[in-house]
Lab assay of single mutants.
Amino acid sequence: NKFNKELGWATWEIFNLPNLNGVQVKAFIDSLRDDPSQSANLLAEAKKLNDAQA
């Protein structure tokens, strides 16, 4: 379904953000699993944090 596809894509993108540490990645992935409907918002937050830590 739509959420599974978005969840998978967001998970892959978060895993590939180079400036996040393992704890941050795990926290974002756990949040995605808790509420897949928020995948776009969580991915945006992860990208912002990644950019801030560059």
Rank of each mutant, 00 (worst) to 15 (best):
F28K: 00
L20D: 00
Q24T: 03
Q24G: 01
K5Q: 14
K26R: 11
D30H: 08
A27H: 13
N50H: 02
L7W: 12
N21K: 07
N1T: 07
A44E: 14
R33P: 01
S31K: 15
K47E: 03
A52G: 05
A52R: 14
V25D: 00
N1E: 11
E6R: 05
I29Q: 02
N41A: 13
W12D: 04
R33T: 09
E45H: 08
L17V: 00
A44R: 10
L20M: 01
S37T: 09
P36A: 03
E13H: 10
K48V: 06
V25H: 03
E13A: 12
I14S: 02
I29W: 05
D34F: 11
Q24P: 00
L49R: 02
A52C: 10
A27N: 10
T11D: 04
L7Y: 11
K48S: 08
A44N: 08
R33N: 12
E45I: 13
L49P: 01
S39M: 14
D30K: 14
D51H: 09
D34M: 14
P36V: 04
F28P: 00
P36I: 06
A27Q: 11
P18Y: 05
D51T: 09
Q24C: 03
A40D: 08
W9T: 07
S31Q: 14
N19P: 00
F15K: 07
P36R: 03
W12P: 02
K5R: 07
F3P: 09
L32V: 04
A10N: 03
D35V: 04
L32C: 04
N4G: 11
D30Y: 04
N50C: 04
L42W: 03
Q53E: 04
S37W: 05
G8Y: 15
F28V: 01
A10S: 04
I14D: 02
D35S: 06
L43T: 03
A10R: 04
N4Y: 11
A10K: 04
N19L: 03
A54D: 06
L32F: 04
D51F: 09
V23C: 14
W12N: 06
S31Y: 09
N16S: 09
D30F: 06
K5H: 12
W9F: 08
V23H: 12
E13W: 15
F3C: 15
W12C: 10
N1S: 05
W12R: 08
N4P: 11
Q53F: 05
L49Y: 03
I14C: 05
S37N: 11
A52F: 08
N50E: 01
Q53W: 03
N21R: 07
W12F: 09
G22L: 13
D35T: 06
K48I: 07
E45S: 09
E6V: 11
F15I: 12
N4Q: 11
S39N: 04
I29C: 08
K26G: 04
A52L: 13
D30V: 08
F15Q: 11
